[in-house]
Design a protein around this nucleic acid. Sequence first.
DNA 1: TATAAGATCGCCT
DNA 2: GGCGATCTTATAC
Length: 175
Amino acid sequence: MARLRRSFFSRGAQLVAPELIGCTLVRTINSVRQAARIIETEAYVGPHDLASHASKGRTKRTETMFGPPGYAYVYLIYGMYHMLNIVTSVEGDPQAVLLRAALPLDNWSVDLSGPGKLARAFGVTLDDRGLDMTAGDFYVIKSLRDKPNIVITPRIGIDYAGEWKHAPLRFLETP
DNA sequence: TATAAGATCGCCT
DNA sequence: GGCGATCTTATAC
């Protein structure tokens, strides 16, 4: 087990997203270490990806995605839910991986079965925009042992994305 | 300055 | 299975 380094995130989101499946997301909240196994992710692959906020261009909101990899891209959706993404690729190329679901570890009793719930349980807010996920107390560790069984499907909730709504960029682990 | 819409969830039937 | 909550952001006047 080793903490994921910036070089891990310095690749295309389409490659990083499936590799995050089975990894462990860790954050220390109120001096308590909380950990969960990532079981669902989605890739947002660049400014040409109509499902990505970056397709609107570089704005104050999407600034983090255009920055260097390994940082948290957080935004609020529907006025009530925070979404947690990790920026990938290189600076100037806006790609990111959305963390959609996880399974709590270490007797942690929470429901992490959706992106809004996951962010809420990990205490993610807009204040966490630009947080460095390769340093500090919020990070991901790689599990070298198990090879998760991964299923690939189109992404969720992006009907506005035209042809891109069919793109197979959602990755989830099956039992 | 004002307006519209969204990478969702939970409660209702 | 359908709908309402609720607020940031982008875009338009």
